[in-house]
Amino acid sequence: MIGQVIGVHIRHEFLKEGRFDTVAARPVARCGYRGDYTEVTGLFEMIRPTA
């Protein structure tokens, strides 16, 4: 599917220092199979190595 985002609504409590707080929003992700889902409860940073 190819699309274009033309608008976004974000609740103010999910913005921390101007950035979207993924952990606070607790989004749900579909993992496959019949009914496997997960939610974001933690976050870590992994910097991409340079070549």
Rank of each mutant, 00 (worst) to 15 (best):
P49C: 04
G32L: 03
T41H: 06
P27H: 05
I47K: 15
G7E: 15
V5W: 05
I47Q: 11
R11G: 12
H12Q: 13
T50C: 05
D36L: 02
T41P: 00
E17Q: 14
A25W: 01
I47G: 05
E13K: 14
V8A: 11
R30I: 08
H12L: 01
H12K: 15
A25G: 05
M1S: 11
I6K: 10
I47H: 07
M1H: 08
A25P: 04
C31W: 02
M46Q: 14
D36E: 13
G7H: 10
G35P: 00
A24I: 03
V23T: 14
R34N: 13
K16C: 05
Q4R: 14
Q4M: 07
R11M: 03
R30P: 01
M1T: 11
R30F: 15
R11I: 00
M1W: 06
A24W: 03
E39A: 09
R26W: 02
D36V: 01
I10K: 00
F14N: 03
I6H: 07
T22C: 01
R30E: 13
V5K: 03
Y33V: 02
M46A: 14
Q4W: 02
I6W: 03
E17Y: 04
E13G: 02
D36S: 11
P27F: 07
T41Y: 08
T50G: 15
R30Y: 15
F44H: 08
T22E: 01
G7M: 05
K16P: 01
A29N: 06
E39W: 11
M46N: 08
T41D: 09
T22K: 00
V40Q: 09
E45A: 12
A29H: 07
C31E: 13
E39L: 05
K16E: 13
G7D: 15
T50F: 06
G7Q: 12
L15A: 04
V8W: 02
A25N: 08
I6V: 15
K16D: 12
P27A: 07
H12F: 00
G18K: 06
A24C: 04
G7N: 14
G35M: 00
P27D: 06
A29D: 08
A51G: 12
G35N: 14
R26N: 11
P49G: 09
M46E: 15
H9L: 09
V28I: 15
G18M: 09
E45Q: 08
M1A: 11
G35C: 02
I2L: 06
E13I: 06
V40E: 11
E17A: 14
I6N: 09
V8D: 03
D21H: 02
T41M: 07
L43H: 08
I10N: 00
F20L: 15
T38W: 04
V8S: 07
F14L: 12
